[in-house]
Simulated scan of single mutants.
Amino acid sequence: MTKLSVYTALLSTLAANAALADAPGTYGDGYYGHPMMWGDGYGFFGIGMMVIFWGVLIVLAILAVRWLMERGPSRSQSTALDVLKERLAKGEIDPEEYQARRKALEE
Rank of each mutant, 00 (worst) to 15 (best):
89 A>M: 02
81 L>N: 04
21 A>T: 03
86 E>S: 10
41 G>C: 04
75 R>T: 08
51 V>Q: 08
86 E>P: 00
92 E>S: 05
90 K>H: 06
59 V>E: 06
22 D>L: 09
83 V>I: 14
26 T>F: 14
93 I>H: 00
58 I>H: 08
62 I>L: 15
55 G>Q: 05
40 D>W: 05
59 V>K: 08
17 N>W: 10
51 V>S: 05
31 Y>A: 13
20 L>D: 12
15 A>P: 00
65 V>P: 03
103 K>Q: 12
64 A>D: 06
32 Y>H: 13
88 L>P: 00
102 R>P: 02
58 I>E: 06
79 T>A: 01
85 K>M: 02
28 G>L: 11
35 P>Q: 05
22 D>F: 01
2 T>C: 03
27 Y>Q: 11
89 A>C: 00
20 L>Y: 01
36 M>T: 14
14 L>G: 04
101 R>F: 01
76 S>C: 02
27 Y>C: 13
57 L>G: 02
33 G>K: 04
63 L>I: 11
33 G>I: 04
77 Q>P: 00
72 G>C: 03
51 V>Y: 06
50 M>R: 07
98 Y>R: 00
80 A>I: 03
94 D>Y: 07
50 M>L: 15
74 S>W: 02
25 G>C: 03
90 K>M: 03
11 L>G: 10
6 V>R: 13
9 A>Q: 12
26 T>D: 15
10 L>Y: 08
91 G>S: 06
65 V>A: 12
65 V>I: 11
27 Y>E: 15
71 R>W: 01
11 L>P: 00
48 G>E: 13
12 S>Q: 15
81 L>Y: 01
66 R>Y: 15
83 V>D: 11
87 R>D: 07
40 D>Y: 13
58 I>K: 11
55 G>I: 06
80 A>L: 14
14 L>C: 05
99 Q>L: 08
44 F>A: 15
34 H>A: 09
11 L>K: 07
49 M>E: 14
84 L>Q: 02
20 L>V: 03
33 G>N: 06
61 A>L: 03
9 A>R: 09
96 E>G: 00
41 G>W: 06
70 E>Y: 09
102 R>D: 02
88 L>G: 01
30 G>A: 08
37 M>G: 08
3 K>M: 12
